[in-house]
Structures are given as C-alpha cells and as structure tokens.
Simulated scan of single mutants.
Amino acid sequence: MTQSFSDRPAIAFAMLPSRTQHVLPDALIQRLGAIGNVLDAAPMQRFDDARAAKLLAETEILITGWGSPTINAAALAQAPHLRLVVHAAGTVKGLLGDSLFDRGIFVSHAAQANALPVAEFTLAAIIFAGKKIFQFRDLYVADRNRKRTQPIQAEAIGNYGRTVGIIGASRIGRRVIELLSPFDYRIVLYDPMIGDAEAATLGVEKTKLDALMASADIVSLHAPSLPATRHMIDAQRLALMKDGATFINTARGALVDETALIAVLKTGRIDAIIDVTDPEIPEAASAFYDLPNVFLTPHIAGAVGLERTRLGEMAVDEAIRFIEGKPLLYEIRREDMALMA
C-alpha cells in the first residue's frame, strides 16, 4: 500500500447524525485526533455548500456513514487530496462509483461489524421459530389459559435435530453457521460459489436450492441482492417448503417474490420472520402487517443503538491502519462491487 500523507492527515466525516447516533462517540474521535487532524467532528450532510467545499479541499481521509451524500465526480473534484474513504456502515452501493476507483482512492467498510447483529437476530429467530414461540404467545394471550398451548408441546417441534437451510455463505450467512454450531441442528447450505471442501470446513452440507427448500424446517436467506438473484425465492420454491416450516429474511426484500410469499402465508402452511421487504416499508394494506403467522420487524436486524459503535470502531481501526501504512482488512476493490449486497 502506498500513500502520501501530511504528518497529521486531515480527517472529515460525512453522515446523517439522526441516523448514526453512537457510531462515533467522543472516545473514537479522540483516537483519530491522536494520529490525525480531525478537521471538524460534526459530519457533513451535503457536499454542495461552502462548509463542505472548505472541508473537502483539505480532506485526506473521509469517514462516511448512513445518510452520507453520494461521493460523485462533483464531490471528488472538491477533494484533491482524498486518499481513503471508510464507510462506517454496511453496503457502499449507491454511495460511490467508478470515478473514485479511477482516482486510485482506497475504499473500506464496516460490513463485517454490521453482520454480527444480523447473525445474532437470525440465531434468535431460528430458535424461536423452532419452538413455535409466536404461536404459543398468541394462543396463551388470547385464551388466558393453557388449554390450547399444552397439546402443541407434544408436536414435532423444538430445536433438537431440526434442519436449518442457509441460503448464501455471505459474511452474515457464515456467522449464522458459526453461531448455530453448538446446537443440535443439521445445517444445509446453498451457495453456488462454495465448493464441497469449503462446505465441509464450514461444517455444513452443500445442496441445491430446491433441495434445501424442500428439506429444511427453517430457511434463512443471506444472499446478496443482484439482478441475478431478484425473486430467487419464488412461488415454485415456496411450494417446496414443508408444512409448518419457517422462512426467515434478514437479507433484502427484492430476493423474494412477495406476492407469492403472501399467497402461501395466507394458507397458513408456513410461517415467516421478515425484517426486510420490497419496498422497504410495505404498503399500509399489506398482509405482512396482519397475518398471524408473520413476525414483521422494521429492518432492525442490523446495528441499532449501541451496536452501531462496532461500526465506528471498525472504521477508525481501518483509518489508523491506513495511516500507519498497514494493509486494510476490509478493502473494497472495483471488481468487488458487482457481487456486493
């Protein structure tokens, strides 16, 4: 890695404060200030005003986050000394384009840090799904007695010996597999990029997508949202799922044909735990809000509250590593963009 820095490289921030509380607490700003020149601890929220023009003219390292303005050619023209962009969040799609790579500017991100809470959410969802927790809750609250809940305990439910299907050995998918390893699950994986040897190393059984959909008691989706993966979970694949199975989506709504998903959910044949939808907020009349076999959350599996500090820590670590001339751990290259979520 080569870079030309001043003695104390100039550091600036670009993100929306209302969306990034806890990402960069004072202690992290102070860490940066010990090795670089923090131009202004208050992040830029736009790149087309006088303040941004002044800051960008000096900036060598830009730390971005949710709500950052797009780093387009116009913004780059104002930042002649920019050497590194570190995104203190997950995906950088929509934030930057080829013009940044054309300039030879290094890019890194904190997607690995954001993967941890998503995987934790998924683990909880899998365990709750296996024990039919939401069904127990609804019946118990509705009846104020245990006449209907006690017989369910004798059914073939619970988490012993169940088959969990993981779609996508992404950062999150791999972490979910790791978190599931102490439990008594059979884990099957679909990922066309993973070979048999790597699957064995992960401790999973590699399988075809249709076979996974048909065999799993719980299906958890962790694939990237790409043109090739749009609606990969369609009516045909949903029809393969076992009666009583649960479908979990913490990836992207566009991966699923939601019309088909709602249709099968309305039959009561399967359950769903859904954190992401397409559009991001379902229409007010969407059946997702009302179906008793759907547990819907507002895209909160990723970092919220204090979990966001992991994002800032990872971004600051990368910036310091770069200043010290060490390789970035989470560098993004131009060729990576086509396969990123």
Rank of each mutant, 00 (worst) to 15 (best):
M1F: 07
T2Y: 07
T2M: 06
Q3R: 13
Q3A: 13
F5D: 02
S6W: 03
P9E: 00
A10S: 10
A12V: 09
L16A: 14
P17T: 08
R19A: 07
Q21D: 10
V23Y: 06
Q30L: 11
G33Y: 00
L39P: 01
A41E: 06
A42D: 07
M44C: 12
Q45G: 08
A52M: 10
A52R: 05
I61N: 01
T64Q: 10
G65I: 08
G65N: 07
G67A: 12
G67K: 13
T70A: 13
N72C: 07
A75W: 00
L76W: 02
Q78D: 05
L82N: 03
L84T: 01
A88K: 09
A89S: 15
T91Q: 04
T91K: 03
F106I: 00
S108K: 02
S108F: 06
A110L: 10
A110W: 04
N114H: 11
A115S: 15
P117L: 12
A119R: 07
A119H: 03
F121Q: 03
L123C: 05
I127C: 06
K131I: 03
I133E: 03
V141H: 11
R148V: 04
A154W: 08
E155W: 11
E155L: 11
A156T: 10
A156P: 02
A156N: 15
Y160E: 12
R162V: 03
A169M: 09
I172E: 02
R175L: 15
V176M: 04
I177A: 15
P182D: 01
D184R: 12
R186Q: 06
V188Q: 12
L189C: 08
Y190S: 14
D191F: 04
M193N: 04
M193V: 10
D196S: 13
A199N: 02
E205I: 07
T207I: 13
A211F: 14
L212V: 14
I218D: 08
H222Y: 03
I233E: 05
D234W: 12
K242N: 02
A245T: 06
A245G: 09
E258Q: 15
L261H: 10
L261I: 12
A263D: 15
V264A: 04
L265K: 11
K266P: 01
T267K: 10
G268H: 09
D271G: 15
D278L: 08
E283H: 07
A284E: 01
N293I: 12
N293W: 12
T297V: 06
H299L: 05
L306I: 08
E313T: 14
E313H: 09
M314K: 11
R321A: 14
E324Q: 12
K326S: 09
L328M: 06
E331I: 04
R334W: 02
E335S: 11
